[in-house]
Design a binder for these strands. Structure first.
Lengths: 332, 332
DNA sequence: AAAGAAAATGGCAGCGCTGCCATTATTGGC
DNA sequence: GCCAATAATGGCAGCGCTGCCATTTTCTTT
């Protein structure tokens, strides 16, 4: 049997088979413009019979109105981004939009290259993480004329749309919470801050708040790799080896915090009496640990949903603050 | 200032500006066919000057050779799929392919609808989870002529390409391991099996193996929701309430197993002496718990990488078994 | 230096669809 | 029943690019 690469049934063939004009088929399939019920049935029957699948490449080119939404995200390992994609894709799918994505590994240069690659698909919108982009990226995005959505960060100036919350506020509230609880010897365990600028914003706001209350950060341990449970464990171990008299530790992420939590469990360090632990993100797993993790829950899925909604409705430029929620938990 | 929706610079304008023909610009940009160095410089200068971004929609339509790869995945909450996407997207990006995706929520009907929607983009390949698809989906995919890749399951008949490992073998080896360790009163805690057919394959192979060794499954607790830490905790609690004399529990997933682990920690149940715990997936977090989780590590990222590679090289139909690794851990 | 081969280049017809406009069938009002 | 609206419908020119083919230029070779 011969291999046929594309059994391409075209709209013209459907029109032919249904005995109507091409425009009529197009109108029926998009349910746009007027046509009689009889015609609709004839067309649908032909579509069914021939197994016609519309070609959206051709449709997009002809109409110049794209229903592609491009995501340029730093990572898929960090649960944040799958969550955002999840929220967005649900909304996009309902509206017959299509999500495309690529992963930058937190590399601004790669972000620029990938953003360029995405623009080649003439998307309706490009969604990016945060505000820090290269000059080239910004210029390109601006020139493209498509909607730009910056996600999960509000501490800066938006190019067009922005959805998320203030990382600085999150850092500030985390510090305020620990201070309120009476902790004074506070340390930090974090992952590579140069790459993750949002974590860095939280951290600096955290430190400023501590400083403003005469309880400056006692020590910090910054690991070079990505955020992970193992790095959190290792980071806390190192931090305590150097500065054993800490009474609380702020982690860059819940992953890291869980690592710290496990370290304490393994070493018999009492939580929170001997050492308090505070995380960031509000992962589900943090709610199921023997002691629920004290952390900040971020609206990750909602960020994706709202961002998608704004794009679909072609909303005017704006910044949407979805806030976050401080979870008191039992570890701090 | 006036709002310009698309500052569309076309290839023709670049050609004009560079004083060459359209085909020449096309050749230079794709680095395909022959052209002089001087011409290349002139073209690139014009591209730079005008800020030209090629239109891949038009390019794809004209060439009928697509560099889109479509992923139709059940979920983004289950870490498995982001991991597969991660592996695949790295390889795809290197080869100037573009990933598009949509999420079925483990609903075969939705899978069919989304697969149809994806085919409208005329992708080079469609990647799906496992072998269970509706008749309509299969027919449609077959008719499309694009490559089909079924991921993370080898227990069944592949439509075209398949990459992953045997879930039945995973279930079997998990059972064999527990039996070898001397456990005889073995229970199971799982999430909704109707939806996740791969988990169901593991479970049935697990039970068969136990049965073959005269240690049939003692009890099971199946939760209706998705796999989660909280469900694992809850499931174990219920299971033990009903059947307290179990000596080991097999979980449908590491998430669930961690929930069970936390339950034991909270209740002071000694692991593994009093109760052994065995998971599935080999999440990183399971390595950082005070006692490393006994589990099976699955090649999630590699599955994505290999799948992408096969598509890019247009490999002949085949089934690639990447195997899995049993991690002894300390919980069983 | 002429002839032949090879390298560069340009022209243009589509890819399959949509949007616009022109045309033809229906409908309702009096 | 006649005419103006209105509803249905068809034709066809692009959308921006690539692939093919024809043509021109440049290099070898004898």
């Amino acid at each position: 049997m011969e291999f046929k690469h594309q059994a391409t049934v075209t709209l013209a063939e459907v029109a032919e088979a249904a005995g109507v004009g091409e425009s009529t088929v197009s109108r029926v399939l998009r349910n746009h413009g007027s046509f009689s019920g009889k015609t609709r049935d004839r067309v649908m029957a032909a579509v069914e019979r021939l197994g016609y699948v519309p070609n959206r490449i051709a449709g997009t080119l002809a109409s110049t109105a794209s229903r592609l939404v491009a995501f340029v995200i730093p990572s898929l390992s960090n649960i944040v981004f799958p969550d955002v994609l999840r929220g967005a894709s649900a909304v996009l799918e309902e509206n017959r939009y299509q999500a495309v994505f690529s992963v930058t590994d937190y590399d601004p240069g790669k972000e620029e290259a990938l953003a360029a690659a995405m623009l080649a698909w003439r998307p309706a919108a490009v969604m990016l993480a945060g505000y820090e982009h290269t000059e080239g990226t910004v210029k390109m995005l601006r020139a493209s004329g498509c909607r730009i959505v910056e996600l999960l960060d509000l501490d800066g100036d938006a190019l067009d749309l922005a959805v998320g919350f203030s990382n600085r506020a999150a850092g500030r509230e985390s510090a305020a919470f620990l201070l309120k609880r009476g902790y004074r010897r506070i340390g930090y365990v974090g992952h590579d801050l140069n790459r993750d600028t949002r974590a860095s914003k939280r951290f600096s706001a955290f430190c400023e708040t501590l400083g403003a209350h005469d309880a400056p950060l006692a020590d910090r341990e910054i690991l070079s790799g990505a955020s992970s449970v193992e790095n959190g464990r290792l980071g806390l171990e190192r931090l305590l080896a150097r500065t054993p008299d800490l009474d609380a530790v702020y982690f860059s992420n819940d992953d890291m915090a869980l690592g710290g939590y496990f370290h304490c469990l393994a070493r018999g360090i009492a939580i929170p009496s001997q050492l308090a632990i505070f995380g960031y993100n509000g992962l589900d797993i943090g709610r199921a640990t023997p002691q629920p993790l004290s952390t900040i829950r971020t609206p990750r899925v909602a960020t994706g949903q709202v961002a998608a909604q704004l794009v679909i409705t072609n909303a005017p430029s704006q910044v949407v603050d979805l806030g976050f929620e401080l979870i008191e938990g039992a570890t701090a």
